[in-house]
Design a protein around this nucleic acid. Structure first.
Length: 481
RNA sequence: AGUGCUGUAGGCAAAUUGGUUAAGCCACCUGUCUUUCAAGUAGGCGAUCGCGGGUUCAAAUCCCGUCAGCACUACCA
């Protein structure tokens, strides 16, 4: 039997980080098993679904590296299938028309709440007489279709992550709505989520449903639907949720939750995918944490997925991201950095200055945590002028600094092309000549060159500045001041 | 309110399924390197395994009880 799993996003917003994590787990499982990873867009709620979100979700999954084998399929194009299923349920007497109005239902729930009871439908229209039905029809009331849930039924399944699960029918909130109120003259309206999911999973021969634990209650309802429709019940695996710092389910309200947000903050897809898989899963040897999707796929099994929810930890994500940035070659990293520099308005030509930019990338790479850090890390190395911070300013105002700079300016005139060795030699020479400590020269030079007292390696920075003639303009401005 | 799930250091987590001082990573602290910072490297601090009983020579692991957190209870997905 070939394993077939799916990710079923709903296009009611941009790709959410929780959806991305579920997608990662599904992808890893499919690849580990040599199975198929399928995408199905659950857009049955037409009022909330939008094409731009679908686009965003698909692009996001692609960007993460989660290539799929089938789809994307769209539920909105498969409505007939669901309608047939609803009709089947009706024909078999497993579903019925409920004429309750939203107001009546609301009243019922409030009454239940007042009595301190769990809210749920009381199945009041399950056994309507033909006369009652006729009355409602003539009143012009349009029915929803409800699927009968046997309160005495005990539903079991063996969850691949949580083990034995058990649910009682009477705790499912009453007979469930599977089709909405019809808009026009149809016999029933838009089929709903739980039904569509089951119909699709049956039809697409999904073997393993891997999803978040917020779907546990749905599972019991869906199993009943599988039985009613005569489908083979797949395996279920409910992963823990991603929690915010307060320990609640991460939601849009927490601000940064869409994959785009993470992308814009300077995280690379490899790092995000890596962190996502670590949220709940541990490799067999339990010590390795840096994995590409392909590496993890070789080791991924559901029984090593943890059951407890995991709080999202920015520090850890940052660290993982830095690991990827640090081992990336400058030739590749530079292309990721260029947009940030452009955005910052730095002075360069992405083609003409490419080799210079690659060199710059090599210098600042070790200090990058996020791509966006490149702006601050390289700020001191762009432009013919500089801005001094307090410490830098204090340094160049010290006795003898201008003379040192003048000597250096004289020296570099002899070096149209200056190497690191040349730079060191110049420093050595000036130190001797001015009879000062080498540390003083270095510190002053750093201040005169970058305006600050700390930053990337001084020699390398200088060589870089020299190649664009900015060391001369910068030092000269101090000498002239 | 019901139902379900979960509970190991600040965070992520492991523990060959009862057996020596409860792994590892992030964060934090320190040394080292670089005459700067970061990175790297070496080391360190931090947990009476939610709590209370019980079984046992031995329990994070088994049993009973208890508490807490979260999720779900839509004509959303």
């Amino acid at each position: 039997m070939t394993v077939r799993v799916r990710i079923a996003p709903s296009p009611t917003g941009n790709l959410h980080i929780g959806t991305a994590r579920t997608a990662v787990f599904n992808w890893l499982y499919a690849r580990h098993q040599g199975g198929k990873f399928i995408i199905r867009v659950e857009d049955t709620d037409i009022s909330r679904s939008r094409d731009e979100y679908t686009d965003n979700i698909l692009k996001g999954l692609e960007w993460l590296g989660l290539n799929w084998d089938e789809g994307p399929f769209f539920q909105s194009q498969r409505l007939d299938l669901y309608r047939q299923a609803v009709q089947t349920l009706l024909d078999k007497g497993l579903a019925y028309r409920c004429y309750c109005t939203p107001e009546e239902l609301e009243q019922m729930r409030e009454a239940q709440k007042a009595r301190n009871e769990a809210p749920g439908y009381d199945n009041r229209h399950r056994n309507l007489t033909p006369e009652q039905r006729e009355t409602y029809e003539t009143e012009g009331r349009k029915p929803v279709i409800r699927f009968i849930i046997d309160g005495d039924r005990q539903i079991f399944w063996q969850d691949k992550i949580r083990g034995k699960m058990s649910w009682k029918g009477s705790d499912l909130g009453g007979d469930m709505v599977v089709a909405r109120t019809p808009e026009g003259d149809e016999p029933f309206g838009q089929p709903l989520y739980n039904l569509a999911v089951v119909v699709d999973d049956m039809e697409m021969k999904i073997t393993h449903v891997i999803r978040g634990e917020d779907h546990i209650a749905n599972t019991a309802k869906q199993i009943l639907l599988y039985e009613a429709l005569g489908g083979e019940i797949p395996e279920f695996a409910h992963s823990p949720l991603i929690l915010n710092t307060e320990g609640r389910k991460l939601s849009k309200r927490d601000g940064v939750t869409s994959l785009d947000d993470f992308k814009n903050m300077g995280f690379v897809p490899e790092a995000i995918a890596n962190y996502m898989m670590l949220l709940g899963w541990t490799a067999p040897d339990s010590t390795q944490e840096i994995f590409t999707l392909e590496e993890a796929a070789k080791l991924f099994t559901l029984d090593r997925v943890n059951k407890a929810g995991a709080k999202f930890d920015w520090d850890k994500l940052d660290w993982i991201n830095s690991q990827y940035l640090h081992k990336m070659s400058p030739e590749i990293l530079v292309d990721l950095l260029i947009p940030y520099w452009q955005n910052a308005g730095y002075e360069f030509n992405s083609e003409g200055d490419r080799s210079w930019l690659i060199e710059l990338t090599g210098i600042i790479a070790p200090s990058l945590t996020r791509l966006s850090d490149a702006v601050a890390e390289s700020r001191l190395l762009f432009g013919d002028s500089i801005i001094f911070d307090d410490k830098g300013q204090a340094q160049i105002e010290q006795e003898g600094v201008k003379e040192i700079f003048a000597a250096i300016l004289t020296a570099i005139a002899d070096y149209p092309e200056m190497t690191s060795e040349d730079a060191k030699a110049i420093i050595q020479q000036v130190t001797k000549e001015k009879k000062v400590k080498k540390g003083f020269v270095m510190k002053s030079l750093r201040a005169g060159l970058t305006g600050e007292l700390q930053g990337p390696d001084l020699i390398q920075s200088w060589v870089l500045l020299h190649r664009r003639g900015w060391d001369k303009t910068r030092l000269q401005s101090t000498v002239d001041s």
